[in-house]
Simulated assay, not measured.
Amino acid sequence: MQFLLDNFAALTVTGLTLGAVYALVALGYTLVYGVLRLINFAHSEVFMYGTFAALWIVLLLGGKAGGSVGQVVFWVAMMFIAAMAMSGLVAILLERVAYRPLRKRNAPPLIALISAIGASFVLSELMGLRSRIAGWFGLEDDLSAYVRNSRNNSALPSIITPQPVFTIGGYNVTNLDLLVVIGAVTIMVVLDQFVKRSRLGRGIRAVAMDPESAALMGVNRDRVIQVTFLLGGVMAGAAAVFYILKYNTRYDAGFILGVKAFTAAVLGGIGNLRGALLGGFVLGLAENYGSAVVGSQWKDVVAFVLLILILLFRPTGLLGESLGKARA
Rank of each mutant, 00 (worst) to 15 (best):
G135L: 06
E95V: 05
L156T: 03
I168Q: 07
V165Q: 11
S120L: 14
S154L: 03
S144C: 07
M84F: 06
A155H: 07
G128Y: 05
G118V: 10
I133V: 15
I133M: 11
I111W: 02
G88D: 14
I168G: 06
W136K: 13
L93S: 03
P108H: 03
L123G: 01
P108F: 00
A82H: 04
I92H: 05
I111L: 09
I114K: 15
N172Q: 13
E125Y: 13
S124Y: 03
A116F: 10
I168N: 06
P108K: 04
G88Y: 08
G128E: 12
G138W: 01
L156Y: 02
A155I: 10
F121L: 12
A112H: 07
I111Q: 08
R96K: 14
G135W: 09
D177M: 00
I133C: 06
L143I: 09
I114S: 05
L126S: 05
S158K: 15
T174A: 05
L94C: 03
R130W: 14
S158D: 12
A107W: 01
L129G: 05
A112N: 08
A107C: 05
Y171F: 09
I159F: 04
I114W: 08
V147K: 00
A85W: 11
A119G: 02
A116E: 00
N175T: 08
S115G: 09
F166G: 02
A134Q: 09
P101C: 14
T167W: 06
P162D: 14
Y171I: 04
A85Y: 11
A98Y: 04
A155L: 09
I114M: 12
D141V: 12
A116M: 06
R96P: 03
Y171A: 04
D177F: 00
A98I: 02
L178C: 02
N153C: 13
F166M: 09
L113M: 11
G88A: 10
G170T: 03
S87R: 04
R148Y: 13
S150D: 15
S124M: 11
L178T: 05
T174R: 00
I92E: 11
N175E: 12
A107G: 04
L94H: 02
N152L: 15
F137D: 07
R103Y: 07
L156S: 02
S144I: 13
E140H: 10
F137K: 12
L93P: 01
I114L: 14
A155M: 09
R132P: 04
F166A: 08
G138D: 02
Q163C: 03
L94F: 11
G169M: 07
M84A: 10
N153Y: 15
I111G: 08
V97M: 10
A145V: 06
R130I: 15
N153K: 08
A91K: 01
R148W: 12
N153A: 15
D177H: 00
G138M: 08
T174P: 00
S120R: 10
